Simulated scan of single mutants.
Amino acid sequence: MALLNAVHHIAIISSDYQRAKQFYTEVLGLTIIQEFYRAERQSYKLDLAVNGQYQIELFSFPDPPRRPSRPEATGLRHLAFAVTDIDEAVADLRAKGVEPEPIRIDELTGKRFTFFADPDGLPLELYSL
């Protein structure tokens, strides 16, 4: 019997909350579920939905430390979003000023994918369904 049912959410801490909020909502098109300011922590918490499903918590904290990302640092490697049409998704990102890496082919699945970064350099991936 499996103990885990699904991934409930992913939490991201941004260095610039307003810039990250704009990126995740206006560039990536995630929907705001709710937003809180927690005065005792000097922190925003923004709950976001991907395709109508709650999945990402975006946080701000005063002066968060930088996390090494590349080359292949320990920890979360990247966050991947499934897309139906990767060419359309790449064109949409480019139109919004985001330049993804060249599209590659997953040698195990034959599916197409590409990487890009959020405003803090967090590696994000588009993966073809």
Rank of each mutant, 00 (worst) to 15 (best):
Q22E: 12
E57W: 04
Y127F: 15
S15E: 14
E125N: 10
F115D: 01
R41W: 13
I86N: 10
F115V: 01
E101V: 02
H9F: 01
L126R: 07
I86W: 06
K45T: 06
Y24G: 05
V98A: 09
V50I: 10
Y37H: 15
Y37Q: 12
T109N: 03
E35Q: 15
S69L: 12
P119M: 04
A89Y: 07
Q34V: 12
K96L: 09
A91G: 04
L3Y: 05
K21E: 12
Q42E: 15
I105F: 01
F59V: 01
R112K: 11
P102T: 06
Q55H: 10
P123R: 14
L46K: 01
E40P: 03
A80R: 11
D47R: 05
L28E: 05
A89P: 06
H9R: 02
R66V: 08
F36W: 13
L126G: 07
T25S: 06
E101W: 10
N51Y: 11
L76K: 04
T31D: 14
L48Q: 02
S43N: 03
L129I: 11
T25C: 12
A89Q: 14
S15N: 13
G97P: 12
G75I: 06
T31F: 00
A80H: 10
R38C: 12
Q34I: 05
E35V: 12
Y37A: 13
F115S: 03
A49F: 05
I105S: 10
L129F: 14
A6H: 14
Y37C: 09
G121S: 03
A117F: 00
A117T: 01
Y24E: 07
A89R: 14
L3A: 02
S43E: 08
P62K: 13
G29I: 07
D87K: 15
T74G: 00
S60H: 05
E40R: 14
E101N: 13
Y37E: 10
D120W: 04
M1C: 05
E35W: 13
D63N: 15
Y37I: 11
P119A: 05
P119H: 02
Q34P: 01
E35Y: 09
L28W: 03
N51L: 13
R77L: 10
F115C: 01
T31A: 12
Q22F: 07
L76D: 00
Q18H: 13
G97W: 09
F116D: 00
G110E: 11
E107C: 00
Y54M: 08
R67L: 12
L30Q: 03
D120N: 02
Y24A: 05
L108Y: 13
I12P: 02
P64Y: 11
I86S: 10
S69R: 09
T109R: 06
L3R: 05
A95T: 13
Y17K: 08
R70F: 07
I10V: 15
F81K: 12
D85C: 11
T84N: 15
Y44S: 04
A89F: 10
T25P: 03
E35R: 12
L28P: 03
E125V: 11
